[in-house]
Design a protein around this nucleic acid. Structure first.
Lengths: 149, 149
DNA sequence: TGTATCGTTGCGTCATCGTGCAAGTGTATG
DNA sequence: CATACACTTGCACGATGACGCAACGATACA
């Protein structure tokens, strides 16, 4: 099945009650604060915090564009920062569910969890669209044009 | 036309050279750092920094769930922080292109730029998927299931 | 078993950011 | 013109986070 809500680190998964974005929106922001909606869980602070540092994002972009799992040493050649800094950034990206690490001998290979991240981003986009009263109430689409799970 | 790349504050728009994600990915992360791709501009640090503070995200979620433009005073009732803090958060969200402010008399109404934000999120999701060598090379889809521009 | 390699973790430092208070700006109202 | 209201901005302070260096595992190899 598809993971609908908040992005989790690799190897976990968590259910979450659906806030059933009812027929009409709350009248005031204060009322909105009380009623919970998919956007609450999809606005995943840890995920977006991972995307909010230039060095970290540069490292992520390098791995992403590479399209394969990369070692820490390889990734460190992208940026002019200490290897320990790279290690910490990759660890944080892993904790936030963006990367996945695999140890092979004495080297650690990090790969991007493309499907999970893009699914989380699209889910948030859908949830935001659903908040607009003028918007049609969201046909649940698959992740991409290709209908694989 | 649709704005393909980085989310901009309301009232602006910027072209950007297309990195033409070529046939095969770069061999190493270092090479990946040199060649630019849609992910570079779509990993918009200012946007995601806006989503990386709990208070700020709570305020945003309130406005989003409300589905209409809200005044600063209204939004301030959602959280237990000073009004000046709310004002600053909403200003930052505006600068990063998430909100749009409109002054009416002495009150300022902030609304969520739903379409622009969700478009930016989906564009990043697409760009990430395109980085996977195993993935089909991205049919350019419209924003949602409804085929309006 | 010693040594080199790959990566992580502890620690101190510095910059950034979130916050509250107080003062300031701009707009309506009497 | 004075006052009230809605919001913004200056300032100081504390918390968080990014960074480099050094020390520490963990694994491979001679």
């Amino acid at each position: 099945m598809t993971q609908r809500y908040k992005l989790q680190p690799a190897g976990r998964s968590r259910p979450h009650r659906d806030a059933s974005r009812a027929s009409r929106p709350p009248a005031t922001p204060k009322q909105a604060a009380a009623c919970c909606s998919p956007v609450d869980s999809l606005l995943d602070i840890e995920l977006f915090k991972a995307f909010s540092d230039p060095t970290r994002v540069a490292l992520l972009a390098c791995i992403a564009k590479c399209g394969r799992a990369c070692s820490v040493g390889e990734v460190a050649e992208c940026c002019d920062v200490d290897l320990s800094v790279v290690s910490r950034h990759l660890a944080l990206l892993t904790r936030s569910g963006v990367l996945e690490g695999r140890k092979d001998g004495r080297t650690v290979f990090y790969r991007v969890r493309y499907a999970e991240v893009s699914r989380a981003l699209r889910a948030l986009a859908d949830a935001l669209d659903d908040c607009q009263p003028t918007h049609s109430p969201s046909p649940r689409r698959q992740a991409r044009s290709t209908p694989h799970g």
